[in-house]
Design a protein around this nucleic acid. Structure first.
Lengths: 372, 372
DNA sequence: CTGAAAGCGCTTACAG
DNA sequence: CTGAAAGCGCTTACAG
């Protein structure tokens, strides 16, 4: 835009550039750049002058210019299946907090079950040159996705993912164990006819979570000498509606179970709704337990396996960012970072997934079966 | 980064640049740039060759370079109080969809009630040079915020906001009317002792929504010849917990009301929980109605005033983007846009807020009072 | 319809 | 510790 003006898009705003700061501080732009980013090769006196000038002029770097010149975007792509679901919303909330604290921008991608979007995000070069790192939350990866991801050569992390991306750490809970605990709780109460409602593998959002939870359910049954009854195992979606539909289907199949283990709290809530509609009381007629410890679980008196959603988000940000930060100085983001010592010696994230603990929370939706 | 290599941050990835495409297509980079963005000043034959070359090389523009040269970021900042709350999650989900469809990136800011974050986002030059537009969802604006926003000179839009930013359109519901309808529903059922639980003005997230809803509540009472009883009006937070606390407080004050109008569904759910804990049945002992039509409202049988959250998000994106798009061509984002005719003549968004309709949804949580 | 060249606003070796 | 200058990869008047 030589001599840019006139018909060109009006950009307006506060137009302080780095050379304005340099001029006011009486140094070169190179020195301003270094001072503002807290690089160690600047004298204290110079730094002070630069900071004062930047503040006086209300200077803010141009992210585009900084990114182009520096080769870093200071941005992380966060990919979730559906931001409206409790687990994903909670994870994103924590991730946003820690990412911004660390000076990173958060680019949000909500897949929403649309395969087309999935491909655009994962398989094209869309993320390429746009972000420094990728966080995939419960995003199922197909072989082609893995290939595309590998070609991007970007660092990343997965949360609650079944697929392993080579070189990417993973944070999750032990879904098999969580399901085992839930089922065992029902068994301990005396239940024998325990149904399971879970995710649909044909769903475009299919992820391995539900497979693991089913496995835990079946393991617990077998350990108690019970052969899993396929007619008590219904697949639907990981949503309230999915739980309602699955439960209706379950009831339509004949004699109701005395207990239902729902693969997530939202399905459990749907189950409670369907049971109520069918005139069955919870827990007198049918016990219900879920997984998550959704905000509303307490309100509904829902027994559940609590999982630390926020903690998974927090940890994921740390595992993702720590390696990035030791590479080079962060771009100036309004305040000069403290000068760092040598690399923190506290992050040896191996290739093993980091497993966070879950916890059985007994409320009012589970009780011994009546016949007992 | 002259001769960049060696110790420099390894950037890796697919390194096709615009001149690779130009060389392969046998044209200048200027022509590649124009062809890829669908500008009209390129011959069909040339365009075809450029597209083929870009595809063959899997070329993707560098957003940083494009933004720096073009002066547009192709990014919108979306600011919400708490992404985990139903209304905001639902709005963001729709907004994300439409923004990405239009080729824009979404930078997410979750205020989380932290005044410090609010200031960083709204009052500093943080957004400046970083986004082309701002969407503020239910974000309360103080005079200093308005000044700061005005200085940014960025286009923007507010959803569900009490504050008017000069030049920004606003999408919302009529909160006063919604509250009036809810209260009148309770009056029509025969209730006279109708309590109201609502948001706390001292809350850092305080927004005018709750003031409007209280006004509607009081107007409906007065229209029915009832003087609003301050002891039946409790302030708390717009959350489940807030609803629980407010209701507990209400019950502690003496004779319970026969009905509660909660300012949002989440508060209503908290109210139901508190009532149950107090041994009161809904709706036999106390009726409860909220506002929103939260996903769980149906499950809980909660009567409510439904508001179109997704529709507000969709409309907001349109009102925000339409004026932007007529200014200049969108940057290349992987596929060439169809060539546009002259500006759409279909967007005359005045300074008047766009008010979307609400709707009374009667479920099982409201019934005539027993005494009646 | 197309190209040469300037310019967007930074950061980074390099040389001192 | 600091500066001059190249370069990051695009887009845009301008001239044809």
């Amino acid at each position: 835009m030589p001599g840019g003006d006139g018909a060109v898009v009006e950009r307006g705003n506060i137009v302080t550039r780095i050379d304005d700061v340099a001029r006011l501080a009486g140094v070169s732009t190179a020195t301003v750049s270094r001072a503002l980013r807290g690089l160690p090769t600047v004298s204290a006196a110079t730094r002070r002058r630069v900071l004062a000038a930047a503040e006086q002029l209300e200077y803010a770097v141009s992210p585009s210019a900084s990114r182009l010149a520096g080769g870093r975007t200071g941005t992380v792509a966060v990919v979730v299946p559906r931001i409206t679901r409790w687990f994903f919303g909670t994870v994103v909330e924590t991730v946003e907090d820690h990412l911004h604290q660390a000076g990173y921008d958060l680019l949000l991608y909500n897949l929403g079950g649309r395969e087309q979007i999935r491909q655009r995000v994962l398989r094209t070069a869309n993320l390429h040159k746009r972000v420094d790192a990728i966080m995939l939350v419960a995003t199922p990866l197909r072989p082609a996705d893995l290939t595309a991801l590998a070609r991007l050569e970007l660092p990343g992390i997965t949360i609650s993912s079944g697929s392993h991306v080579p070189g990417w750490p993973c944070v999750r809970i032990d879904d098999v164990a969580a399901a085992r605990t839930a089922t065992r709780h029902l068994l301990d109460l005396g239940h024998r006819r325990i149904a399971h409602i879970s995710g649909d593998p044909d769903d475009e959002l299919a992820f391995t979570t539900h497979l693991d939870r089913r496995r835990g359910y079946q393991e617990a049954l077998r350990a108690a000498g019970i052969d899993p009854d396929p007619s008590l195992d219904v697949e639907s979606q990981f949503t309230i509606d999915g739980g309602t539909r699955a439960t209706a289907e379950l009831l339509a199949r004949g004699e109701p179970p005395t207990a239902i283990f729902a693969a997530c709290d939202e399905m459990a809530m749907g189950a409670i709704s369907a049971l109520r509609d069918a005139g069955l009381r919870v827990p007198q007629d049918v016990s219900v337990i879920g997984v998550d410890d959704h905000d509303l679980a307490r309100v509904l008196g829902l027994s559940t396996i609590a999982q630390p959603a926020a903690e998974q988000g927090r940890l994921a940000v740390r595992l993702l960012l720590d390696p990035l930060r030791t590479r080079t100085a962060d771009p100036y983001a309004g305040q000069v970072p403290e000068q760092r010592g040598p690399d923190h010696p506290d992050d040896p994230p191996g290739q093993q997934p980091v497993i966070l603990p879950t916890r059985l929370v007994v409320r009012d939706s589970t009780a011994p079966p009546r016949a007992h």
